[in-house]
Design a binder for these strands. Structure first.
Length: 598
RNA sequence: GUCCCGAUAGCUCAGAGGAUAGAGCAUCUGCCUUCUAAGCAGAUGGUCGCAGGUUCGAAUCCUGCUCGGGACGCCA
């Protein structure tokens, strides 16, 4: 999609400057004209110097000359190599949002660029409930999956549940000792929280034993908790339980299954509230041995080597050496990921795989990809680690052990409660029937929008007091613009003017506020595609804020239902509905919805 | 020690080599008898960490330095 006059300008410049070499599919692209300049759009000719093999200034002069006499251009101005164009409203609206279906459709990539993509995210441990860090992961993962799908990719979101290991044994052991047969049903506690409580109890007991150990053995004072873990009774007990688990001890397995089922049932509620859905779940207890075959293959091919002590290693050059199998033959974290990556490849035959995992694991993924490349998998060049930054609190880092984590379920409840309070304040005595549904959409929307506003790789600060606001650059701000349009639409229906809306004449919309909305709308497909290309939803967030801002200015200055005449009214109404469609589409790409009313 | 990431307004953050560096919050000033004030308009606020370099043009690219965070395990 492009402005007709720019397509014609391209042809003109090609003729004017012999020797021009236009790359396949190249177009003259517009930028929004800065607010303090006269113009709707800007053409930046600095960028075209190479293509037209001429000085930017000369190209801009030629462009200005051509556009000045163009029937669809009202005014054109050249400053340095910038050409600022005021379009006639009819042309501006025709080339932007008049055909809303075409505009929304333009966000889809051509079929040749559509890929099959597996997105792995969330990957929780089953020993404790999810916290704000997981919420950021889940939000990024689901929004990325949704966005990639929106631009035309075939996306399979998957989750790898980390359901085995020493951490789950810790919860199990504490449950055996202190549980007294408690269940989520008997206590009324959500399963993941119940198990998490025992994880905390385990660590309390461990800390007691560590303190006692240090007290009794002053020479151990300088040793870390990890060093002393197996010197404590409860540390050894957890270790033993892990060995029993690996050996398939029936009693341990039974407890493990029971407690995992509680946690997973709890996670399902958390996911449901966020709107998280996976195409497939992988359990690490199923996949943790998969990597061993890969290691054998690598050894046969001579890509890996066996060290004297029996450990299998790989030499990754600049990245260093990495152990793939311990000297006792057991697998390590990266072995499991090698196996799972191949399994995902077999299951989906994707063009590309993406992992949404925190940035402390950057090296791990560099190594994983390097190993797969070294093994000769051609698709290994299309693996991406979307490394996102940690979430910090004003008080510093979140630490499970220090109890400073922000619990996911509590956070949701708090956001929704505040949204409800804000809604009730505004609606006075007439409490809407759908108050709970509305609060849910607004509260969860605010939370997701806030998390997506940051560039994923930013280490972000979550200030509960500031983040919980619904004013300014927030999800509710964008939702509000949509809700206002919903309200106008309802009133238009009541007054029976929806059906008479045949009088659309875009040339009537010459106010700056009206044209500004059209200019923003024009850039919607580009915003989505750029975000998808960069795997960065914050692009979409910025775009939507910008569009909503332009709409709110329009709303203030240009009466719709009370416009001076019917043709103007109907055209403005059409403008509103199209903006609402874009906002709804964009928010939905971020997995956020708009309430009917706010 | 080596490697990676960051440093932009009082605070939180945007800024695909391009115009006089932006937004929100906070502070201050206006605007609800007109379609929703979760809104709009305005004011205040900047040596873009420091020093060089490349370029017609650098917050953006390169080099060095300072400060902050992370990684460097036969943990996950």
């Amino acid at each position: 999609m492009n402005f007709c006059c720019l397509n014609e300008l391209k042809e003109h410049l090609i003729e004017k400057f012999p020797g021009t070499q236009i790359p396949e599919g190249w177009e003259i692209t517009a930028e929004p004209c800065p607010a303090d300049m006269t113009g709707d759009i800007t053409v930046n000719c600095f960028r075209f110097a190479r293509i037209f093999r001429n000085a930017p200034d000369k190209i801009a002069a030629a462009a200005k000359e051509f556009l000045a006499s163009h029937a669809e251009v009202e005014q054109v101005e050249k400053i340095k190599a910038f050409v600022n164009i005021v379009l006639k409203p009819g042309a501006l609206f025709r080339d932007s949002l008049a055909d809303i279906d075409a505009l929304l459709d333009a966000a889809k990539l051509p079929e040749s660029s559509q890929k099959k993509i597996v997105v792995e995210y969330s990957a929780p441990n089953t020993n404790k409930p999810q916290h704000l860090g997981h919420v950021r992961n889940n939000t990024l993962g689901m929004a990325l999956s949704s966005l990639l799908k929106r631009v035309g990719h075939k996306v399979s979101p998957v989750n790898l549940i980390n359901d085995r290991g020493i951490h789950i044994c810790k919860s199990m052991l504490a449950y055996q000792r202190f549980g007294n047969g408690a269940t989520p049903e008997s206590t009324g506690i959500k399963g993941d929280h119940l198990v998490g409580d025992f994880y905390v109890k385990y660590n309390d007991e461990l800390n007691k034993q560590l303190a006692k150990l240090r007290e009794q053995n002053p020479e151990l004072k300088g040793k870390s908790d990890d060093d002393l873990f197996l010197k404590t009774e409860i540390g050894r007990a957890a270790q033993t339980m892990l060995q029993q688990w690996e050996a398939g001890d029936p009693e341990v397995r039974k407890l493990w299954e029971t407690m995992n089922s509680w946690v997973i049932a709890g996670f399902e509620q958390t996911y449901k509230r966020m709107g998280v859905e996976f195409f497939q779940l992988y359990l690490e207890s199923d996949t943790y041995l998969l990597g061993k075959n890969v290691v054998e293959q690598g050894l046969e091919k001579g890509v890996f080597f066996k060290r004297d002590d029996g450990a299998v290693m790989v030499d990754l050059g600049k990245l260093g050496e990495k152990v793939l199998l311990r000297s006792d033959g057991t697998s390590v974290y990266i072995t499991q990921d090698l196996g799972t990556t191949l399994k995902k490849y077999e299951d989906f035959k994707p063009d590309s795989q993406i992992w949404v995992v925190g940035d402390e694991q950057i090296l791990h993924f560099k190594m994983l990809f390097a190993i797969l490349k070294k093994m000769g998998y051609e698709w290994a060049g299309n693996l991406y680690h979307l490394a996102y930054g940690m979430v910090n609190l004003p008080s510093g880092k979140m630490k499970s052990r220090e109890g400073t984590v922000v619990d996911a379920d509590d956070l949701f409840a708090e956001m929704v409660e505040l949204a409800k309070k804000a809604t009730l304040e505004r609606c006075g005595d007439e409490v809407p029937e759908d108050i709970d549904e509305r609060s849910e959409i607004i509260g969860m929307g605010a939370l997701k929008f806030m998390l997506l506003k940051f560039n994923p790789k930013t280490t972000m600060m979550f200030d509960p007091e500031a983040s919980v606001k619904f004013e300014g650059d927030t999800g509710p701000y964008v939702q509000y613009a949509g809700a206002r349009i919903n309200s106008i639409e309802r009133k238009a229906r009541e007054r029976g003017i929806m059906d008479s809306a045949s009088e659309i004449d875009w040339s009537l919309l010459s106010a700056t506020e009206e044209k500004e909305v059209a200019v923003r709308a024009f850039f919607y497909p580009q915003a989505l595609q750029a975000a998808a290309e960069k795997l960065d939803c914050s692009n979409v967030v910025s775009y939507l804020l910008d569009l909503a801002k332009a709409y709110n200015r329009f709303y203030r200055e240009c009466p719709v239902l009370n416009a001076d005449n019917e043709a103007l009214r109907d055209t403005r109404l059409a403008l509103c509905l199209r903006v609402r469609d874009i906002i709804a589409d964009g928010l939905s790409a971020l997995t956020i919805s708009i309430p009917e009313a706010m």
